[in-house]
Simulated scan of single mutants.
Amino acid sequence: MNVPDKRVFVVTSGKGGVGKTLVAAGLGAALASLGHRVALVDADTGLRKLDVALGLENRVVYDSVDVVRGRCSLREALVRDKRLGTLYFLPAAQREDKTAVSPEDMREICARLAESFDFVLVDSPAGIEHGFRTAARAAEAALLVTTPDIAAVRDADRVAGLLAEVGLAAPLLVVNRARPRLERTGDSLSPEDVAEALRLRPFAVLPEDERAVVCGNRGLPVTLDPASAAGRALRAAALRLAGEPCAVPRTPNRKGGGLLGRLAGFLKGEVAPEW
């Protein structure tokens, strides 16, 4: 798979709860483990979560709004990870409106970070409102995260279209919580189904993994847990992002069940979803 020769990536999704922050934190930690200088940026003003995923919530002093308003320098706002010396984190503000950081502000912050870091990963808010547009306009390429669920894929399709509108066509697709057992019985979409529906090639496939929940509660990126299957998949994705040859793991072929056809109807607007 050809990976864009870019430095600033937005990690985004159509709906919340699909593992977007898990992917951002895990990829950042994995890239830092490979020796790259990595800056993780939380763009979810008002609802920051990346600090918790990294276990750095107690070390936050300044945030991106403080940088924008001149209350501190960008260097002062960056939090250095306590486990990986080349991983840094820029928090979002918790008590500010999402409009406190404009697309121009975020673009300038990311451009400055790209001068000193090998990778800048921006954790976008879920959905398609102001926060998403702010994060997307600052990026050079995108990672689109979804689960193999009809509602999540339909929302991801909408986001893929909006990414194309701001010049981020062909995002790198990350399918989280793949369920091979349900794929074999036709009760879950496979990563191939998701890729076909979104007209994208899978960049990473993360299996459903209880260790991911444990890591999230402990503030540990999954890629730092050797027992995590999702972490192993993300470590392989980090190699691909860094330009190293590493194949995307295959999953079982779908058995059927009509889910892909049903999803195709939703994406065309021909069928009303059953909630």
Rank of each mutant, 00 (worst) to 15 (best):
S102A: 12
V101R: 04
R250G: 15
A227L: 13
L54A: 06
T45V: 15
V52M: 13
G55Q: 04
R7M: 01
P245Y: 13
V61D: 08
M106E: 09
V213N: 02
D97E: 14
R137A: 13
A126S: 14
G46I: 10
K268L: 09
H130Y: 15
V248F: 05
P273R: 05
S116A: 15
F266N: 02
E274M: 14
V248L: 03
L259P: 03
L239I: 04
K20N: 07
G261E: 15
D149P: 03
V175E: 03
D118F: 02
G265W: 03
P207L: 11
A30D: 09
R71W: 07
F117E: 11
V67R: 00
V174T: 02
V175Q: 01
L56D: 01
V3W: 12
S190N: 08
E108H: 12
V52E: 07
A212M: 15
A92D: 09
K82R: 14
V166M: 11
F203L: 03
K98F: 13
V159Y: 01
A136H: 09
P202G: 02
F119R: 05
E270T: 13
P273N: 08
P125Q: 05
A126Y: 00
R80G: 12
L78Q: 07
E96C: 10
E183S: 03
V205T: 10
T134L: 02
L168E: 07
V79L: 12
V248P: 03
G35A: 09
I128W: 00
G219T: 06
R250E: 15
G167L: 10
V248D: 05
A29D: 10
L189T: 01
V271T: 11
N2A: 12
T251G: 14
V18F: 10
A230M: 12
P91W: 02
L27I: 05
A142N: 07
T12E: 08
N217P: 03
V248Y: 06
T86M: 06
T185G: 10
